[in-house]
């Protein structure tokens, strides 16, 4: 057992607020363009979100999301075109359907639904892009780390 730390020592050692790691899948035509728009307008945005560009939100496999969690992401964001605006007609609808399934399943895995958000950002919606990102970062900051960690740790034996 270590000695209890003094308050000052605790503060000094405090790592600051939890900074979640978030992976965002952005469709090329609407949401990535929306993100570019936010950039062009130089709207400050939390740096916690790492963007992966895909052609269509319909490309997002549930495996991408699970793998992101496994690799240390605290949250995943899928951004799609608005209904009726999909460059590929229906990809965003498939994304919605898969997302509904995913949410249902993540719940069984004890992963809060806020950690996997699907939203819709048009090419013109730079401000919405920043808002969705900010909200997501804050929501996940409140939830705390997902802490899946390496799988070995989860499987560590212990007394009955």
């Amino acid at each position: 057992m270590t000695e209890p730390m003094t308050l000052a020592a605790t503060e000094a050692a405090s790592p600051g607020p939890f900074e979640p790691k978030i992976v965002a899948f952005l469709c090329n035509w609407c949401s990535y363009a929306g993100a570019d728009k936010a950039g062009a307008a130089q709207i400050p945005c939390p740096d916690n979100v790492r963007v992966i560009r895909i052609m269509c939100s319909g490309r997002v496999e549930p495996e991408f999301v699970l793998q992101a969690f496994r690799l240390g992401a605290d949250g995943v964001l899928i951004l799609a075109c608005h209904a009726g605006d999909c460059h590929y007609k229906e990809g965003n609808y498939r994304a919605i359907q898969r997302h509904r399934l995913l949410l249902q399943m993540l719940e069984q895995f004890g992963i809060d639904q806020q950690r996997c958000r699907l939203d819709f950002v048009a090419a013109s919606e730079g401000e919405k892009y920043v808002r969705v990102l900010t909200e997501t970062v804050e929501a996940i900051r409140t939830l705390g780390p997902l802490g899946l960690g390496p799988p070995e740790a989860a499987a560590a034996p212990g007394p009955v």
Binding site: E63, L66, Q67, F69, R70, Q108, F109, G110, I111, L146, G147, L148, P151, A154, A155
Partner: peptide, 9 residues
């Protein structure tokens, strides 16, 4: 054997 393997704790 899946990616998540178990319920998150």
């Amino acid at each position: 054997g899946s990616i998540l393997r178990r319920r998150s704790q």
